[in-house]
Simulated scan of single mutants.
Amino acid sequence: MEWTGVRYADGPTVEVDGRISASPERVWELVSDIGLMPALSGELQSVAWLDGASGPAPGARFTGRSRHASLGEWETTSYVVACAAPREFAWAVGDPERPSALWRFSLAVQDDGGTLLTQWMRMGPGRSGLSYAIERMPDKEQKIVFVRLREFERSMTATVAAIKGLAEGTSTVTEVRA
């Protein structure tokens, strides 16, 4: 992906995908299970549904606690903005009208019955922890954004690979966490 010269206000995106030899229904079980996501992420530490929700539905909210060596620790509230089993699960971090990030899993059935899983994210337009780093070092904004996008790309690639292993039965959650 090409991110040279990209600024936060541009709403930069990252997208990764992978073919999985499992039905979209099986893959959906994994991508819509927010409780699984901390096991697949080096940054996301914990999640919890809010307001009595026990699973994804449009408008449902959940908290996420994250940690990053350069950005510290933080908590966010996310809103499910799309939930169409077994095709799409998306959430906005912070204000759904002006999120600090928008995340989406898309699932497409393949001719062989497997699934093409795509994970996509967009930074902004709302403020995030990255906004504060950019304000402290405005002359380094493009580098800050580039580095963060590369981190997201690596993490998302690992997430899709972990979901593939879990869906195909070639790995377990315990192995994924290691």
Rank of each mutant, 00 (worst) to 15 (best):
R104I: 02
D95H: 06
V109P: 10
G113V: 03
R104N: 06
V93H: 00
Q110D: 15
A90V: 07
F105C: 08
L102W: 11
W103C: 02
L102S: 12
R98Y: 13
G113C: 01
D112V: 09
R104K: 14
S100K: 10
A101S: 15
A90F: 03
G113P: 02
A92S: 15
L116R: 14
R87D: 11
S106R: 14
P96A: 12
E88D: 05
D95I: 09
P99F: 00
R98V: 10
A101M: 11
W91N: 10
G94M: 11
L107W: 01
E97D: 13
R87F: 01
V109Q: 14
P96I: 14
T115D: 05
A92H: 09
L116T: 04
W103M: 12
P96V: 13
A92M: 12
F105Y: 15
L116Y: 03
R104L: 10
W103D: 03
S100R: 14
Q110M: 15
F105P: 02
L116W: 03
A108C: 00
A92Y: 08
A101I: 05
T115C: 08
G114T: 04
D112M: 08
W91D: 11
V109N: 06
E97R: 14
Q110I: 04
A108W: 00
E88L: 06
P96H: 09
A108Q: 03
R98M: 13
A90M: 08
R98K: 14
F89S: 02
A101P: 00
G94H: 12
S100L: 05
E97S: 11
T115W: 05
R104G: 01
D111H: 11
G113N: 02
P99N: 07
R87Y: 03
L107M: 07
R98F: 11
A90I: 02
E97I: 00
W91P: 08
T115N: 05
A92F: 12
R98C: 13
D112G: 11
E88S: 07
G114Q: 04
A108I: 01
F105N: 03
W91F: 15
V109G: 11
D112S: 07
A92V: 08
P96E: 14
A90W: 04
A101Q: 10
G113R: 02
A92P: 12
L102F: 11
S106M: 05
F105E: 05
E97K: 13
W91V: 10
V109L: 11
P99K: 08
D111M: 05
W103S: 02
R87T: 13
E97L: 13
D95Q: 13
R98G: 07
P96Y: 13
G113E: 01
R98Q: 12
A92G: 06
A90L: 10
D95T: 08
E97V: 03
